[in-house]
Amino acid sequence: MKFIYQEFYSASSASDQGTLYQLRNLLHRVDVTGPDGVTGAFRQHFAFVEDCLDAFILAAAMDIMGMNELDDQPKEFRPPPLIQTASCDEQYSWLSSLAQEILERHVKLDKDKNPQQIAAEAMELDQNSALIQEMYDPLTRKYTCTCAKEYKSLGFFKRHLVKEHNWTFDVPEKNPSETDLIASYRGSFMKNALLLRDTYNAFRMGDGNRISRNTKFEMLCASVRGHTKYKLWLWRFQAYITAILTPKQAEEYLWNCTASTSGGVGNNIPNDNLVELHVQLVKKLIKEQGGNFTYQSAKKAALSAHLQKEMKENLEGNVAAASSGRSRTKTDSSSDLYLILKELVAAGVFRYEVGRKYDSFSNFKDVYQRINLPELHAWITKQKTRASSEMF
């Protein structure tokens, strides 16, 4: 969540139609204050991103279907006749085709930097790294090339390989003037907001496979913003699943990332949130002890916190008392969605015109375009070496 605001929220972009800051002012969401306020007002910031994403998806669908207003009849990509009476499979098939069209036309703009291309470039770096290690002689502490030249420094050796043998260690960048930076901003925001929504739903459903898949994209985002601790945690999560733990332990680790505190489908929460809730409960019990607080009383409070909470909830259920905080009133944001949608359509955010840009994001690049793959590869290689001896 904080990553999205760091990337797409700039307090100087009030005049840039379609940016998060301008849309926040349009809706008068005074409780949304950017990356610094995410921790203290997470729900408000999350709800704002969700509303923006819904409006962006609606605007993208309207553009594909040739509609200027929500009440217009589609001119292109029309739904089959009487689709409302069709079977669920037929409705799902048409919606899937529409979603795929949205992804291809409005989200996946930088074809030369898709995940498959990143994986191919990383594989090439792996092969180059393995070849370089074979050329290193630990006795002489020198790198010996196939042309018999020797180098003590890895940097000079790589320079020789690039100049004399046409090796590649860097990826050429695209000239920003050849792209539509407003479209890049829109596509990049939708990629990351969709990733946030999918991760949130994966934790709610306790879907270990989706959680694991999304951590790979999240690690790339953490690398772009320099969040080393998050990057390390996400990498170790993958390392435990794929290499370090036994198959049985890996499955347990993968499918026990969440916990259900109230039962039912879709009510899971991440384990770290569960720990935080338990810590808050223990702090509350200790605070209630006042001057009678001791180490032993704190220990008893920690061990009995869950039991006391269950007894309280059972008692409330028996006397038919509504538990405060158990349910939240759902806010109707349809009017806000309509305002955002009108703003996006008026600004032509879903057009593609080479040379357009936002003043506050004049040099904007897609998040996955900014991945420094050689640097990330070197960092992962170092972590692999550490993991071989430190992690267990």
Rank of each mutant, 00 (worst) to 15 (best):
M1R: 10
Q6H: 13
E7D: 06
S10W: 00
A11D: 08
A11W: 08
S13Y: 05
G18S: 07
L20V: 04
R24A: 08
L26N: 12
L27I: 07
H28C: 05
T33N: 13
G37Y: 09
G40I: 01
A41Y: 10
H45N: 10
D54L: 04
I57W: 06
L58G: 00
A59M: 03
A60C: 03
D63Y: 08
I64Q: 04
M67T: 00
N68A: 01
F77R: 09
R78T: 00
L82W: 15
I83P: 07
Q84S: 06
T85K: 15
A86M: 11
A86H: 11
C88L: 15
C88P: 06
Y92G: 02
S97T: 02
Q100A: 05
I102A: 04
E104Y: 10
L109W: 12
K111G: 13
K113S: 12
I118V: 11
I118T: 09
A120I: 13
A122Y: 14
E124R: 14
L125G: 04
A130C: 05
I132R: 13
I132Y: 09
M135A: 08
Y143E: 06
C147Q: 09
E150A: 08
Y151I: 03
K152V: 00
K152L: 11
F157R: 08
R159H: 15
H160E: 06
K163M: 07
F169S: 05
S177Y: 13
Y185E: 13
R186P: 03
A193V: 06
A193K: 12
T199M: 15
Y200I: 02
N209S: 07
I211M: 05
S212L: 12
F217V: 00
E218L: 13
E218F: 12
L220Y: 11
C221T: 00
K231Y: 11
K231F: 10
W233E: 14
A239Y: 15
A239Q: 12
Y240L: 11
I241P: 10
I241Y: 15
I244V: 12
P247G: 00
K248N: 06
Y253T: 01
N256H: 14
N256V: 02
S262V: 06
G264N: 07
V265P: 05
G266E: 07
G266L: 12
N267E: 10
I269M: 15
P270Q: 05
N273H: 10
L285Y: 11
E288H: 06
Y295R: 13
K300W: 10
K300E: 14
L303H: 10
L307F: 12
K309L: 14
K309G: 00
E310Y: 04
L315S: 10
L315V: 05
L315T: 05
V319P: 09
R326Q: 08
R328M: 05
S333T: 06
L339K: 14
L339H: 12
L341T: 00
G348P: 06
E353Y: 08
V354T: 14
G355R: 10
G355H: 14
G355Y: 15
N363V: 03
F364V: 00
F364W: 09
I371K: 08
L373I: 01
P374T: 00
E375T: 04
L376S: 01
L376V: 02
I380M: 07
A387H: 06
A387E: 07
